[in-house]
C-alpha cells in the first residue's frame, strides 16, 4: 500500500493506488515512523497514486502539521494535473515544496542519486 525508501536524512514515500482511509492511514504511520527516527525531510511521490479523496486530504494535512511541529520539510513530487489542481485550490501546496519528480526533490536536498 505504501512503499518507502530512505536516503541519508531524506525519506521517499510512494502512496499506491487510492489515497483513501486504508492507504492514507498507512501513509501517516509511515511518515510518523520516519519522523520518529529523526528523518525530517519527506518526499511524497505520487507517481503511483491514482486518486486522492477528502480522506486522503485530511491525512496529508495531519502529515504537514506533524512535520511543521518538528521543523521538517515536505515535498510533493510527480503530481498529476488533477492532484495539482486540488492541492492548489485547497491551498495545500503553500505548505510543501512541489517538484516535477523525485530526482529534482532529492537534488534540492543535495542527495546523490545512486542508480
Amino acid at each position: 500500500m505504501v512503499v518507502s525508501k530512505s536516503l541519508e536524512d531524506v525519506a521517499v514515500i510512494y502512496p499506491q493506488g487510492y489515497l483513501n482511509n486504508l492507504v492514507g492511514e498507512s501513509l501517516e504511520k509511515e511518515c510518523n515512523a520516519c519522523i520518529g527516527k529523526g528523518i525530517k525531510k519527506i518526499v511524497l511521490d505520487f507517481s503511483k497514486t491514482k486518486f486522492i479523496n477528502s480522506i486522503g486530504i485530511s491525512i496529508l494535512l495531519s502529515i504537514i502539521e506533524k512535520l511543521k511541529k518538528h521543523n521538517g520539510i515536505l515535498c510533493f513530487t510527480s503530481l498529476n494535473k488533477m492532484h495539482e489542481e486540488i492541492f492548489e485550490m485547497l491551498g495545500i501546496t503553500k505548505y510543501a515544496l512541489v517538484f516535477r519528480n523525485e530526482d529534482e526533490a532529492l537534488k534540492h536536498f543535495r542527495v546523490a542519486v545512486k542508480e
Partner: peptide, 18 residues
C-alpha cells in the same frame, strides 16, 4: 468505529480542519 472515523476524516478533509 471505522465508519465514523472515516466520516470524520472526510469532514476534516473537506474543511481542511487539522
Amino acid at each position: 468505529n471505522e465508519k465514523i472515523r472515516s466520516v470524520l476524516y472526510v469532514i476534516m478533509g473537506t474543511f481542511l480542519a487539522v
